[in-house]
Design a protein around this nucleic acid. Structure first.
Lengths: 199, 199
DNA sequence: GACCAGTGTCAACACTTGTTGGCCTACACT
DNA sequence: AGTGTAGGCCAACAAGTGTTGACACTGGTC
């Protein structure tokens, strides 16, 4: 980066509104899904004119692509004790989905992925690139170093359960699912995930 | 109201088109979700004028309410051997979701429930009325007759996993999830469900 | 001062949405 | 015959959508 005096990257004034638009977009997409999150509503939440949204991101689809980039930040499981795999993973996802700043992005991704074909494709990509590799360490205890050929299925089962959990707790809001504490969830779900990974 | 002749319900001529509209609606709602399933598209699929949809069902919401009534037809589990609970339930849901005539209705319900508030409310109702009662027989083997107070949580966990399965297999279409055979799914998922019910 | 690109607003476009009213047709009845 | 009514199509409406272009205000550089 050149740093002469002020040029090149002088922290343009529009960067703030650009960020405001992105934040508003994530919130609306998460709350309403792709179709019902209108450009006008996003613009209003960002206290800006709708036309600015198009100016900055080209189109509504461009905005969505810019606003929703998923990074699950999956931990490296190779250092985790083998019988702690399930609990570690469940805790990580609970933190990510339900408390972190990425929460809105993930709920948005889920809501949009269900109705929008492009959203579904994006989720497939996230799964393939971030979740599936995680199953390299899968398989029963004895088989060290070898990647079992049912690793993709194991990863898919883990994804199924954790996405289902997010669905019932954060989107559909089934009463008993919402009522469960973080520790309850870990106690119940961790053994199931553990079995999918190492069973 | 007027019964001039003998048959009070003489199989009116419009009943056929009414059924055609309902079938088309289920298909479009399942494929596209609530917002993207337009009245015009449904009408075209039913080979009818869009205005007829409104005439028959009052509004788009009315059509949705008429088209999507979920009956999970859950089997009576009291007669099932205790260690077969999980497998029985998983098989039932696979048949229901993925092959039966109710398949379109259920996928529609899932797609709409995620983006539409009314749809989410409907799913909560289905869960409360049809799934939650199923957990009356839950709890460890010894406790016969007593309904444990964690029964709602157990039911929610079962719902989470099975809905997550439907999500990854039928909606998001994660490759390894789709590739799994019916028997593979039962082999993997049944023990987890079993534990939630009877563990 | 003049300039000029970045930043923003306003009004309007073209299009799709759910919904409505008018008019035509075919059938069941007397 | 004739007549009433349910079934059906057509054209149009008002509202809301994403998107575009013309115009106005800033801030800093010559």
């Amino acid at each position: 980066m050149p740093e002469t005096t002020a040029p090149a990257t002088p922290a343009r004034r529009g960067d703030a509104t650009r960020a405001a638009i992105l934040a508003a977009a994530r919130e609306r997409f998460a709350a309403d899904g792709y179709e019902r999150a209108t450009v006008r509503a996003i613009a209003q939440e960002a206290r800006i004119d709708p036309s600015m949204v198009i100016r900055y991101f080209g189109s509504k689809e461009g905005l969505f692509a810019a606003a929703v980039d998923v990074d699950l930040r999956l931990p490296d499981l190779t250092g985790v004790p083998r019988d702690e795999l399930g609990a570690t993973l469940v805790r990580h996802f609970l933190d990510l989905w339900e408390t972190g700043p990425a929460s809105a992005v993930l709920v948005a991704m889920l809501r949009v992925g269900v109705t929008n074909p492009a959203g579904a494709a994006r989720m497939q990509q996230v799964f393939a690139e971030q979740v599936a590799p995680l199953a390299r360490i899968a398989g029963p205890a004895g088989s060290a170093g070898e990647v079992p050929d049912d690793a993709p299925a194991r990863a898919a089962l883990v994804a199924s359960h954790l996405l289902g959990l997010a669905l019932t707790r954060l989107v559909l809001r089934f009463e008993p699912a919402v009522a469960m504490s973080r520790d309850d969830v870990v106690r119940w779900v961790a053994p199931a995930v553990q079995r999918y990974l190492a069973g």
